[in-house]
Amino acid sequence: MDTDEEGPKERWIHEYTRIESPLLVPELRLHLATETSCLWRATDDDLRRWGIEDPFWAFAWPGGQAMARFVLDQRVWFEGRAVLDYGTGSGIAALAAAKSGARSVRALDHDPWSKVAVQLNARLNDVNIFPEIGEISYDKPILEDTVLLADMTYDAVTTANIVQWVRTLQTRKVTVWIADPGRGYISEDLFPRVATYSAPADIDVNGAYMVRTHIYRVC
């Protein structure tokens, strides 16, 4: 597959994923790898053949689900805001921000497949989002006043970089929201917790196992 083109990727996502609503956010619909989708049974070799590397965008992670729930329930924090959702994946948290009346929503992810998935998911939920492919330059200012980080704190190195970035954003009066399903790299010692949800630990949508997922607020 020509991995530079978005058209074939769109068709591929339609064919290989299913449209489902994540457990915590039944009002959103996403293209996901579910048990009945072809993507669910893919092996490493299949992914290589399709030119897909780590399809984080095809799963509704517990952090994403909790963040989206929080954003939908606490619209006062997001209404009229310019929101950056970093590591957006499926765009679940970005969609919630748009639904909650954000002035603008930028959905940033390094994976070109994520951009296509976010476009499809935005259309599916009838919201406007600006998906973008890329990484954050931690030392450069951003245009937004609100940042969402859903399930991004899952390894030591990334978390260290993110925490440093969050501290910089803090001095620039940017409000940062972090959702973390207890992956062990951030805690209440670091940032204040504002909400806790029970989110599906498994990345299927059924929620056979739930995990306590915390929302942290840095401002």
């Binding site: 790898a33 893919a42 092996t43 780590d54 095809a58 992670w61 030591a156």
Partner: peptide, 18 residues
């Protein structure tokens, strides 16, 4: 067993101490 895609993806966010 062979690892399934959901398994592979879940593993990317599991904790590895060093």
């Amino acid at each position: 067993r062979f690892a399934s895609l959901p398994g592979i993806m879940k593993a990317k966010k599991k904790k590895v101490e060093e």
